[in-house]
């Protein structure tokens, strides 16, 4: 058995480090991935700009606090009132319009340990 030279060993270490760095960078991107959340509105806090949802994942029901940022859209869908159009149109709502009991879906990003909403869509008002 021959002893590998130092230069060859150094190249191997460098390759390993490169792989690790790239994997960690890639995982950081995935970490902030978007994921849909759906659930029932339990509470709305207009001062903290949050909405608390009761949501179920993998058999576990839990409360999820969704944070709103300045650009977050909250929308409901209503039938178009324009003659000849039968589809849905978006209607913008404010956070204070959301009511406990409503069912919403949220397009959110996981950022800094928080769920930050891009869009909150009202599925059902009740």
């Amino acid at each position: 058995m021959t002893k590998p030279d130092a230069a060859h060993g150094g190249t191997t270490v460098t390759r390993f480090l490169a792989v690790i760095v790239s994997v960690v960078l890639w995982s950081a991107v995935v970490w902030a991935d978007e994921a849909p959340i759906a659930g029932t509105v339990k509470a709305v806090d207009t001062s903290a700009q949050t909405v608390t949802l009761e949501s179920t994942a993998k058999g576990k029901t839990r409360q999820v606090v969704v944070h709103l940022k300045p650009g977050t859209k909250i929308i409901r869908f209503t039938r178009s009132s324009e003659p000849g159009k039968t589809g849905f149109v978006e209607q913008a709502l404010g956070l204070a319009d959301l009511k406990p009991g409503w069912i919403v879906s949220v397009e959110a990003k996981h950022e800094g340990g928080k769920e930050v909403a891009d869009v909150v869509k009202v599925v059902l008002e009740r």
Partner: peptide, 23 residues
């Protein structure tokens, strides 16, 4: 290196979000 790669893959698994309700 192998442990680090495994850790990286675990981290990168499509966990997506703490509130992952997708199942």
């Amino acid at each position: 290196g192998a442990v680090a790669v495994a850790f990286g893959l675990w981290v990168a698994a499509p966990r997506s979000s703490q509130a992952d309700v997708t199942g």
